[in-house]
Simulated scan of single mutants.
Amino acid sequence: MGADHARRLATRIAGASLTALADPDEGRVGALAEELDGIAVHADPLDLIASDDVDAVVLASPGSVHEEQLLACIERGVHVLCEKPLTMDSESSLRVVEAERAGGRDLVQVGFMRRFDPEYVRLKALLDSGRMGRTLLLHQTHRNKSVPHPDFRSEMIVRDSLVHEIDCARWLLGEEIVSIQVISPTPTSHAREGVVDPQIAILRTASGAVVTNEVFVNARTGYEVRVEAVAERGSAIIGRPASGVYTTTADPGGGDGSWGGPIDPDYRVRFERAYDLEVQAWVDASRRGEVVGPTSRDGYVSTLVCTAGMQSLASGVPVAVETPGS
């Protein structure tokens, strides 16, 4: 993701110049810097954040180091686009929100890029228009072909994948989530031993709407993300590769799955346009001294719901969510 953003900033975004990269993998970051015409390289990301050549920062680092890096950006007063999750738990996310508030400036945008995806934007406008009446249900599907990382655990499905669906539900419905329950069928044989995959998360909102979320990170067919909104006078679906009834089939030989046409292999293909729009909006806003899109509070609330979701994953029962200020 970091390399993808670096290439995006260097070649496709107006109003910004890529000046520095940081990564502990010297070989990888050195090759990327050479590809991008000799960009400065820092072994320590905190050195990059402190550099006089840096006016704004994109964080695509592991969530476990986000808090330290975000606090460094806030202390220096530089705008930052932080990939999800904001941090790994609600306590550290709250510390980031409080630090930003204490500094007196909005500086943090969270990388929930679906808010910039043209299909999601159209669905949000349709729901907000009231043409279909009150929205009663959202059905959200989030499937990955596979998860190659050997340390990917059941909790990470909630914290790193479901977090997108939580933000989408809050944004599309315009209200807070008051409870979450995470359940699962028998795990797929493609999951690592002990990993609960797929998972179904059931969210209830303040108005009584229900959101069902399927997250399946070893689905084998490809990257599938879609939403169906069911309202009082109609429904709407986004993310389908074709109209009508269709099926997806895995390739026994390990290649990409198919529906009679290609399935996107990963998030970078499915949401390429959304990422471009997100980063361009962030650059434009940063130059104005503003923040657009998901804020640090949005990141905090999503992490708060995920924390409750991990409790429900362990117990199988609904867990209440209390959102401060809601």
Rank of each mutant, 00 (worst) to 15 (best):
G2M: 04
H5A: 07
R12G: 14
T19L: 00
E26D: 06
E26F: 09
R28A: 13
L32C: 03
P45M: 09
P45Y: 07
D47P: 05
A50C: 12
A50F: 10
D52F: 04
V54H: 04
A56E: 05
A60T: 02
Q69I: 01
Q69C: 02
L70Y: 00
I74L: 00
H79M: 03
H79N: 07
L81G: 02
E83N: 05
T87Y: 00
T87D: 00
S90L: 09
S93G: 03
L94H: 13
L94G: 09
V97D: 00
V97I: 03
A102W: 09
Q109D: 02
F116C: 06
P118Q: 05
T135F: 04
T141V: 15
N144V: 07
K145F: 02
F152K: 11
V158I: 12
V158E: 11
E165Y: 13
C168G: 13
L172M: 12
E176Y: 04
E176G: 02
V178E: 15
V178Y: 12
Q181P: 14
V182Q: 06
V182C: 06
I183Y: 04
P187V: 00
S189F: 03
E193C: 04
E193L: 08
E193Y: 10
G194N: 08
V196Y: 14
P198V: 01
R204Q: 13
T205C: 11
A206V: 14
G208M: 10
A209G: 14
E214T: 08
A219G: 02
G222E: 11
G222K: 06
G222S: 13
V225S: 09
V230E: 09
A231V: 04
E232K: 08
R240S: 07
R240M: 06
D251A: 10
P252Q: 06
G253S: 04
G254V: 00
D256F: 06
S258K: 01
G261W: 07
P262L: 15
I263S: 05
R268I: 07
V269C: 01
R273T: 11
G289A: 05
V291L: 01
S296N: 07
V301K: 00
V305P: 07
A308F: 03
G309Y: 09
M310T: 09
M310N: 13
V317I: 15
P324E: 11
G325E: 08
G325A: 03
